[in-house]
Each structure stands twice: as structure tokens, then as C-alpha cells.
Simulated scan of single mutants.
Amino acid sequence: MRNEYTPVEVEVKIPVCSLEDTIKRLEQDGFCLAGTCREEDVYYNSAHYDLREHDKALRIRRVTDLDTGKTRAEFNCKGPKLDQVSVSRMELEMHLETPEILERILEELTFLPVPCAVRKTRFTYTRGRVTVAVDRVEGLGNYLELEIIGQGEEQRPACLKEIEAVMKELGYEQKDTIRTSYLSMLQKKEEGEVQKK
């Protein structure tokens, strides 16, 4: 049950042509590099509860820090998108010591991995409470994600306004954003390639 303290991930996503130019602009605007990592996201779904149909997501993410070589895992549950202009949604997250055990639990409950895994290299920048991820996504290209984690739905409009101000600083407008997840883009791409064969 959602309450006023449920974290809400307020986020916009923008396709970009050049990672190098994007990173240079972020650094010029006072953003600091917080880390570089390699992420692999495996999403789960079930015949008895189709998460895609409900615009929800369940995933296990493995993160390798490219500076230290250390790997960690986390479990995420995302709710439906909350508006028509961003990819803001409720997000619950926990760190995993033994992701293999959770994989077995999900399998026992008939939640199975979907065919597409999302693999990307992520450069994370921060300024104040705004986090910017510059992503190189395998099979899709380069993207910019601007995010603020708000505590409760009532904070979403203010968070979105702050993100839109940062977008403007970086030379982007609302019309440049997309609302489709990396997983959905990969699935559509794969479906298109299958139809061509």
C-alpha cells in the first residue's frame, strides 16, 4: 500500500547523439562525476500477472563499478507511470546479498526472466539533488536520464519542474524526451527483426 513516504522516481529520458559532448556540457554546468559502472538488468514477468500489461516492472540489476571492479545486486519494483510527460513512477528498491536465491524464489512463483536483458555502461553525474545518468545501451544507442527521488506523490510536480530547468540548461525541451523504457525499446526492436526474417 502506497503512503506519503513511498519513494517516487521522477525521471525524464532523452536520446543523445554524442556521449562525449553530453558529458562535456554536464561538467561545464557544474555536475560532478559520481561513478562509472556496467549494469545488467534482468526483468521478470508471469503468465498469472502480466507486469507489462499493468505498466509495472520487476527486475534484478547487477552493477559492476568500473573504477573498483566490485559488483553488487539490487531488486527493484516499479509502479505504473504517473503522468503523460515523464517516466515518473513509484520505485521500491533493496540491495541483494544473494541474488541467485531471489532468482530461485521468483522461478518458484512462476515469475520468469523475459528474453531481453538490458545491458549498459552508465556514467553518473550529480548536482544538488539531481542525478544525471549518461547511458550507452547495447543495441539502442546513447541516452540521458535526469532523475530526482521524491518522497511521496505530492513532491512530483516540484521535482519535475526542477528537472525541466536542468533540461533547459543542457539545451533540451520536453519535446526531446521519450517515455519508452529500454526494455520496451529492445523488445520492439527484436520483434521487428523477427518479422523481417
Rank of each mutant, 00 (worst) to 15 (best):
D176S: 07
E53F: 06
K175N: 06
Q151C: 12
M185P: 04
V132F: 03
E27D: 04
I60M: 04
L82T: 10
S18V: 05
V130P: 00
F31N: 07
G139R: 02
L96W: 03
G69T: 11
E169F: 05
T71P: 04
V194G: 00
K81S: 06
D176M: 11
R72F: 07
I163R: 10
F111S: 08
F31R: 06
G79N: 09
A73V: 01
L186E: 02
L160Q: 15
Q187W: 05
A47D: 15
L183G: 08
T68I: 09
D67E: 15
T121H: 14
L144I: 10
D50P: 08
D83G: 08
H54P: 01
F31W: 12
Q151S: 13
V16K: 09
M167K: 01
T6L: 07
G192S: 11
D50N: 15
E190I: 00
D55L: 04
N142K: 11
T71L: 01
S88M: 04
R89P: 08
L109N: 03
T64I: 13
G69W: 13
C159Q: 11
E138C: 12
M185S: 01
G35D: 07
V8W: 02
T124G: 02
Q195F: 07
K81C: 08
G128T: 09
R62D: 11
E193S: 06
R52S: 14
R179L: 10
Q174G: 02
C77H: 11
L58W: 02
E107A: 13
Q187I: 14
I163T: 11
V137G: 02
S18Y: 03
L26Q: 05
E93M: 09
R2A: 11
L170Y: 05
A34M: 13
L160N: 11
L146I: 15
